[in-house]
Amino acid sequence: MKPGPSSGTNLTHHNDQPFHAHVVPVIVLLAVFGALLGLTFLSLAATWIDLGTWNLWLAMGIATVKAALVALYFMHLRYDHSFYALVLAAALLFVLLFVCLTLLDTVEYYPDIHAIS
């Protein structure tokens, strides 16, 4: 695999530098950690108000923001070669297809099943 542009600049021969790969600054890790804890509390607080079906979508939206923070910073996707992100995106795409097509099917047959049970 070709080296990514961001990691390529880190390939210096100073002894005080990691040889390859980007090192995420501690302040960034701390900020992400704080944001994740804050969002966890926010998703808990969101159940105190009644938004009908929007409660589910709000909770999933917050979870997706948290997941993106973990993937981008803790898993360093933001700094890495984008091929790793492509691998993850491919997995998520096929899970999404799987869930959506199955739901389409189950919704299609739901009246028949409901009539029996």
Partner: peptide, 9 residues
């Protein structure tokens, strides 16, 4: 992170 809202919330 996804299991938490799907079951608890």
């Amino acid at each position: 992170i996804y299991l938490f809202p799907l079951f608890y919330l």
